[in-house]
């Protein structure tokens, strides 16, 4: 019976109390489905991803979609103004969202966004980093860990090479990026806890 949806993958955090749980869920699902499809399309364009077994493709996407979305949608978090843009384009302040029930996850999202934006990555670097986020051999349920690991290593090498080429005097950027991976895991875990608390099925 949650009354507010503080995830920016909604058009608004406010829920019409007249609506049934089912229709609220349907609307939420329709809101985030295009973003998930975009993540799948992105994954399909990663060289080597389609060569993995379908089971492992699904497992990686199930486990990593949230983390990919966090990286892709850092622009929704205005660090300076401390505001979050929802799908409708309307911005809500952190204070407003806190009063609606947003917890530590929101602050952690801002911290992550601030640190990632500070690295000033190009679109190509961001894209390759996102591929590294998705192709992680330590996700649960993988049937062919070696294949995923081999692809992961290829992608990490490519990212390192790109960062070295673009920032010859700032190789620390590569290390900082790799250190973002556990941060994303932590955000993913916090998000999962929120989802478990949120009974999505009416």
């Amino acid at each position: 019976n949650r009354m507010h949806l503080v995830c920016p993958m909604n058009t608004s955090p406010y829920v019409d109390p007249q609506k049934s749980g089912h229709s609220i869920w349907e609307e939420f699902s329709m809101s985030f489905t295009p973003a998930v499809r975009e993540v799948v399309e992105f994954a399909k364009r990663i060289p080597g991803f389609k060569d993995l077994s379908q089971h492992d493709q699904v497992s990686l996407l199930k486990a990593g979609t949230f983390e990919v979305l966090v990286v892709r949608f850092t622009s929704l978090f205005d660090v300076k103004e401390r505001k979050v843009t929802f799908l409708s384009g309307r911005k809500y302040s952190v204070d407003a969202l806190r009063s609606l029930g947003a917890g530590d996850l929101l602050n952690s999202m801002f911290d992550f966004t601030e640190k990632l934006q500070a690295l000033n990555l190009s679109e190509e670097e961001m894209s390759l980093f996102t591929a590294v986020v998705l192709v992680s051999a330590d996700r649960s349920g993988l049937e062919n860990v070696n294949s995923v690991e081999a692809l992961q290593e290829t992608l990490i090498r490519a990212l390192r090479s790109l960062i070295t080429k673009n920032h010859p005097n700032e190789i620390a950027i590569f290390t900082k990026l790799l250190l973002k991976l556990p941060d994303l895991r932590s955000l993913n875990n916090m998000h999962s806890e929120q989802l478990l608390a949120f009974k999505v099925h009416p």
Binding site: F32, V36, R37, V40, V58, L61, A63, L195, L196, V200
Partner: peptide, 27 residues
Amino acid sequence: FSDPASNLGLEDIIRKALMGNMEEKQE
């Protein structure tokens, strides 16, 4: 234990998108 990704229906969306929406085409 409840799987958040399954709760969201993520797996279904992912499978359909991976298959190139074959199910939708058949419909």
